[in-house]
């Protein structure tokens, strides 16, 4: 790691981050106008740590992860501004050839739907071998040994025979393990996991989350975990960025966020969790729905659903600031912080 210790303008981070996203803007252009799916997102991730990015459908969390991988479909999508600093390198400026060297090698990704990401006409061994043959120059024999080793590592039983299986011969949990084995093949420094366990049953989810944590501990890899599940975030993340309508509205260490959510959206999100409600009590709800990305409201984008919005919220976009009494780099983007405390 060459990067010197730096202080992010917004995050207030002190150790050298593995990944620093600065004011990222990814927009989609169509006949119906410009959809500003990601519109000024900043955060940082330290090596060996997990950053949870949470939010509901349409908040821009998946577009953020695709932007980091430079996999945003173009057209209609394009990164129109900001920086994605991976070490010292700005991935926004990197050439496609350079990205091919990085992807699957230094940065790997795990998707929600393993069936979509695995090629059905090749054996899993073939697909596992491809990564190391490409990035490490292994020959066939070495690559096959490596593939079996990786399958063993992710806990697939009888890996010597499973290496010759096709994806359809495996269960959902096994396919996700294969995806993780592929992602981990080249010891990436950063793993981008986009809803890695959403399609899985809870007992399998528990296995996979444990597996990711174990591999992370042994390899010191940073994990960017994209999820809508606040339970998963609570159990795995060190820091959390809460996104709403293309913006980070709150950023904090996980304990601070769950102990004292401060943005009206985060507060509403927590209250609508059935886990925390008492039986017989009505669930709190956030009225209305997330506005479509080509029609985000002016000013604070949450104001149309916010219980304490004022005229000022419509005029001025709130910046991410450290609220009074907050510590550990907890930042919130809200004009009505004092009032939000009373929610």
């Amino acid at each position: 790691m060459q990067s010197k210790p730096s202080t992010s303008a917004r995050g207030g981070l002190v150790t050298a981050p593995l990944l620093r996203v600065v004011d990222l803007q990814t927009h989609f252009f169509s006949d119906e106008g410009v959809a500003r799916a990601v519109d000024g997102v900043s955060f940082a991730l330290e090596p060996g740590k997990t950053l949870g990015v949470v939010g509901e459908s349409g908040c821009g969390k998946s577009v953020t992860s695709l932007s980091i991988m430079r996999l945003v479909p173009n057209p209609p999508g394009r990164i129109v501004g900001g920086q994605i600093l991976f070490g010292d390198e700005d991935l926004v400026q990197a050439s496609e050839a350079r990205m091919r060297q990085i992807r699957g090698n230094q940065i790997a990704m795990v998707f929600q739907e393993p069936m979509m990401a695995l090629n059905p006409v090749y054996t899993v061994g073939n697909q596992l071998m491809e990564t190391v043959r490409l990035h490490r120059g292994y020959d066939k024999k070495q690559a096959r040994e490596h593939a079996i080793e990786m399958l063993t590592k992710v806990g697939i039983p009888s890996p010597e025979s499973r290496v010759d299986s096709y994806p359809h011969e495996m269960s959902g949990g096994m396919k996700q393990r294969v995806m993780i084995a592929m992602a981990m093949s080249c010891d990436p420094k950063l793993l981008v996991a986009d809803e890695p366990t959403t399609a899985l049953d809870v007992t399998i989810q528990a296995q996979i989350l444990d597996l990711i944590r174990e591999l992370q501990d042994s390899a010191g890899m940073g994990v960017l975990l994209i999820t809508h599940d606040l339970g998963v975030v609570a159990e795995t993340a060190h820091h959390v960025a809460v996104m709403y309508a293309g913006k980070v509205v709150e950023y904090a260490p996980v304990v601070d966020l769950f102990e004292r959510p401060r943005h009206p959206y985060t507060i509403g999100l927590f209250r609508s969790l059935p886990d925390l409600a008492k039986p017989g009590e009505r669930l709190a709800t956030i009225p209305g729905i997330v506005p479509p990305a080509n029609r985000f409201p002016s000013g604070c984008r949450f104001r149309t659903r916010c219980p304490i919005a004022t005229a000022q919220c419509a005029e001025l976009e709130p910046p991410l600031l450290v609220p009074k009494g907050a510590s550990n780099g907890h930042t919130v983007a809200c004009h009505r912080l004092e009032e939000a405390l009373a929610l």
Binding site: P157, S171, G173, M174, D201, V202, T203, I204, Q205, A206, Q207, L209, D210, D229, L230, G231, V232, V233, A234, E235, A237, V254, V255, F258, F270, L273, D275, L276
Partner: peptide, 20 residues
């Protein structure tokens, strides 16, 4: 196995082996 939305409650899970 159900993840609970409370980071202070990172309880020990009973991990089941294998699939259904």
């Amino acid at each position: 196995a159900v993840p609970h939305p409370d980071p202070k409650l990172r309880k020990k899970r009973i991990l089941l082996q294998g699939d259904v």
